[in-house]
Design a protein around this nucleic acid. Structure first.
Lengths: 297, 297
DNA sequence: ACTGCTCCATACCTTTTCGGTATCATCATG
DNA sequence: CATGATGATACCGAAAAGGTATGGAGCAGT
């Protein structure tokens, strides 16, 4: 059977048109080279060289084969190289799920840095409601996810990559809207809008703790998954909310953000399955860790 | 050194995810296959499979390598196949030079038939003045040329592929223009325009013979290489000419064509170097011979 | 024309590699 | 715990690869 070695030999001879020099280039002696070429010609059923005693020349079929063989050799070597790069995580695919909120915080910078350092990795970014992100990582749908700390989940590892304070979001007509700073106690009696506990337990917990520190238990009248939806509903004057400060970037009309005294800090984490073997993942996690940012207070 | 066989083995295992069945598919036993894969992994420096005792699965690097390996194997097999086809003349390149006149006669049909039967051959058609076509074939510039019979040339073989009668071309204002048929004797005393003897000796000879049969020796006042130029000059009333009848197709203004009594027949030949090894050439010559046409009288 | 040189092919030997058989180790399953 | 399935390992004979020595054809220079 023809193999790649014979192709290499052929290319060497075809490029030098001299069996002796080709053999030298291949670090072997001439007779085995001659024999390999003869074998190749026999197996192909094609004469590749005209031996004119003084010099060898390519036949037309040989010229064609030279072109093709060069291409094949390059592809072959590249395939081997790609496998090596893939194992080092320099080449491959990485799918990352994220809560939409992350698109306003860590996601752009993290993605940019990762893609710059790993240009061979095709990154698939997919937004999702936070509630399904954990499961999606566990089932392998995503290699990693960026979300609010979901608390301990069996089979899932998380690492904090971003912290930012919560702000108070109120309707522009709300009495508190004019204040530059608000304390926990002033929120007593308000109707809160927030995420369900299952979706972001730590976030919910932080809000509840903050309210309790102000001397009351918050009542959640509306529960939705997305921070964007929360602030939209606040803008519709359906209640108030404590949301990550970066939500102010949205610039929604009729909406006011107030700093909180002793504002609780909410964390973004990256979550992954420790058994995930995708070599593109580890560098992504390293990049995520390296970039731990703290939002401006 | 990694070779193509190991790649084939790898693809078989990767596609079955089962060493035993892959070995069966490869018509070999399982142990050598396992060993070849192990060798491949060692030489690549990359683990391609996760052996989980019960089943084998591809690593991410293995998945990447599978994609690449499939492509490489196809290219490899294609390169071998192409060499075989190239030797049979089904694949390759063929360069054909032709006098422009042939573009009005045999060239279109011949080229069309040849390309239809040999879709793998890239045909390069190049027009040239007849004077250089013979040399261009001898130097290897063209594999074949289509021209007026140049007479015997050392190292060149020719074969007639087309015959057509000569017609008289005159300016529309010429007294002979009105006649449907003209005899040799009527051309006596006219100024002839024609090709130099070196360019198309047989053509020139035929014209001279025809005139002599009419009882006079033609005088050539203008000599140019191309039939198109000849008829253009006739249209400018610089003389008359005997040209292949197919020149009438040009539809040049102020130009009249008259049939000749006992019109001499002029031949197109295909010329080639008998030592030419281009496998695409022989089928072209066969096609040219098959299509010997005789222009309508 | 003869000699010598160049260059590829052939002959023969040694080493490497390959594939086959037998067998082992591991792990999921009943 | 026994069983069966699966891949790895050990070992052997066969095939193939590469090395050295040499042959033979053709061109160059005297």
């Amino acid at each position: 059977m023809i193999d790649i070695r014979q192709m290499r030999y052929f290319v060497a001879v075809a490029e030098t048109l001299h069996f002796g020099r080709a053999a030298e280039r291949l670090h072997m002696s001439q007779p085995p080279l001659s024999r390999q070429i003869a074998t190749l010609e026999k197996e192909l059923g094609v004469r590749l060289f005209d031996r004119e005693s003084r010099r060898a020349t390519l036949t037309p079929a040989g010229r064609r084969f030279l072109e093709d063989a060069r291409a094949v050799l390059i592809s072959f070597d590249q395939a081997c190289q790609n496998a090596r790069m893939a194992e080092r995580g320099e080449l491959g695919e990485l799918s990352v799920g994220f809560m939409m909120h992350a698109a306003y915080t860590v996601l752009p910078g993290l993605t940019r840095r990762y893609m710059a350092r790993h240009p061979g990795v095709r990154v698939e970014l997919r937004e999702a409601i936070p509630g399904i992100l954990g499961d999606a990582v566990l089932t392998g749908r995503f290699d990693a996810a960026i979300l609010f700390d979901p608390g301990p989940v069996r089979g899932l590892v998380t690492q904090v990559i971003f912290r930012e304070p919560l702000s108070l979001a109120v309707h522009a007509s709300h009495p508190l809207a004019a204040q530059t700073s608000v304390s926990a106690g002033q929120l007593s009696g308000e109707a809160f809008i927030g995420t369900p506990t299952e979706v972001a337990p730590r976030l919910r917990q932080s809000i509840a703790d903050y309210c309790r520190a102000g001397g009351f238990e918050p009542t959640f009248r509306l529960e939705v998954e997305l921070q964007q939806t929360i602030v939209s509903l606040v803008a519709e004057n359906l209640g108030i909310a404590l949301v990550p400060r970066s939500m102010a970037k949205l610039g929604i009309a009729n909406l006011a953000f107030c700093d909180l005294d002793d504002a609780p800090i909410i964390e973004h984490v990256v979550a992954w399955r420790p058994g995930n073997l995708n070599p593109a993942l580890a560098p992504f996690l390293a990049e995520a860790r390296r970039g731990v940012e703290v939002g401006p207070d």
